[in-house]
Design a protein around this nucleic acid. Sequence first.
DNA 1: ATGAAAGCGCTAACAT
DNA 2: ATGTTAGCGCTTTCAT
Lengths: 337, 337
Amino acid sequence: MAVTIKDVARLAEVSISTVSRVINDSKPVSPEARRRVLAAIDELGYQPNEVARSLVTKKSNIVGIIVDDIGSSYVAQIIRGVEEVGRMYNYDILLLSSYSDKEAEIRFVQLLMQKQVAGILIVSEILNPEVLAHLNMSKIPFVYLNKYYNVLESPTVKINNLDASEKVMKYLIDEGHRKIAYVTQEKDIDLTIEKHKILGYSTFMNQIGEKKNIFEVDGHGINDGYALGERILDKLIKEEITAIFCCEDEIAIGLINYLYDNNIKVPDDISVIGYGDISQASVYRPKLTTIKEPYYDIGAVAIRRILKVLKGEKLEDQAIELPVQLMVRDSSSGPKK
Amino acid sequence: MAVTIKDVARLAEVSISTVSRVINDSKPVSPEARRRVLAAIDELGYQPNEVARSLVTKKSNIVGIIVDDIGSSYVAQIIRGVEEVGRMYNYDILLLSSYSDKEAEIRFVQLLMQKQVAGILIVSEILNPEVLAHLNMSKIPFVYLNKYYNVLESPTVKINNLDASEKVMKYLIDEGHRKIAYVTQEKDIDLTIEKHKILGYSTFMNQIGEKKNIFEVDGHGINDGYALGERILDKLIKEEITAIFCCEDEIAIGLINYLYDNNIKVPDDISVIGYGDISQASVYRPKLTTIKEPYYDIGAVAIRRILKVLKGEKLEDQAIELPVQLMVRDSSSGPKK
DNA sequence: ATGAAAGCGCTAACAT
DNA sequence: ATGTTAGCGCTTTCAT
């Protein structure tokens, strides 16, 4: 049997209330009593039972985080940010993986409510309005993060994607490119962040008065990027494209693989730019020029928002936008023609 | 205020014990009462308070997992295994990152004890006997995982590393290589798993009667592999090495980079084999021949062990060994001389 | 400043 | 089969 507050009280010859006051610093306690309590705690190696505490305070110091898949590296980065900041304020993390299962997301939210978590963080890759409804009902502070979709009307932290595509376009044009293509994901463009990226691309293309070339890719994998290459090669040549901005690093890498296999040199013949700065990006040869999204920061900012609400502070905006960084590496250069 | 067991009892016109019996299926309840309780639960949307439950049962359905760094991909894979299996048995995961801080590991163990977790899983990259001591004191079932060091006298799940190096050596020799080098980490070889890998290497080299060439590398990064290349190039040439087996993929990739930059072709001039099958391994060009360690399985087996103990079953052995897989890809071939 | 006592929501022994 | 009741370990009024 573990040592409880009673044991401490008995040994210190005070009441359990006094012990409680000492460990919580909640009310004045005489120096003498405090000394005895501390001594008793030390002697017995007493550790307050967090569960009992949570029961009465109706608050745990646990933050629940429902992620899509802990295996994705960006998710791991977010968790890292959450974990590290949470730790500074003594919050622990309860981790649940939904694997894009809507039902699971909802079940998990309920589960976290049962566990009296202090806050909830969702990292989803799907659109699930139901889960938002549950969250809003719960009265638990939460932040909803989504890499692909725009989160509206809910607390979130997101990337400034317009800024991202503008940075890329400006760089490319400054390097002398004019025939620039963009590769986007195929679906729900209105709902997704692709909207903003395409806007940035289009604006610049209009500005320099060149024809827009937007290709759609199916899937998120390197294979899909490779398959894309196969599909668009002719068009690339016909349109004399000298630079391609891809919506995801994986796609860019797959595309580079395809080009390499077809004797088209990157960046000499075509510059390829990715998006995301996944770990492979800086290893791959040629090293990928890409947009680095601050996932660690997203996690850190997200948890800070929850902590803020917990402290009773009001949030100004629902959404916080974080800037990105253009990582110029070896898969891009000026056009060599 | 959330709805409690009392509200359900009142609405169903039964006692709270009956409600408890229904939700826990712990004792027979008349069909009629059960029906009313279920209806009331449904109507009120009642969800049992897990915290109160844990307080009385002294058991939570939470498994604590202390990892070195959630950012490492192998750690993420382990967590994935733990999470997925845990979920099947309704266990949740409390995640703590120690970043190789000994003090933190110990603090976290105590924290988890306070939280009444059902089990503890440690994924450490350092050697920390103190934490083992705390763990043993806690009476909480645990498994200690360590990628680099041999865990003795404690429940663990590990890789059969001798098997791993034998597989590599057998493959290389079958391909016709004889001048084979091994790259190891520099320190504590007696304590680390390197011991078994080197044993496998040495055994085979003795068998074919060739001179052993073991190089030591400092650090775990790609840069370190690159630096290694610089240091050993002359020796490689002098000894006419045709294949190098590296203790880590990162080292292998760095080494390949260096060789590539110095006009030595992989695998034509030298075959390079890694260890770990990190995500880059199958993307990198040439794709890395390497040993795939089953991290997902390690996590899954580890949590199963804990669950087993929780069910009161005895463990046969302290350690479970999992087999590895040799992934033959493009960084290796027969010697081309 | 301190203690007694109520009660958080639940389970489980005991009584019926 | 069902209800009553005593805690689980703690915080927090309410007295003193």
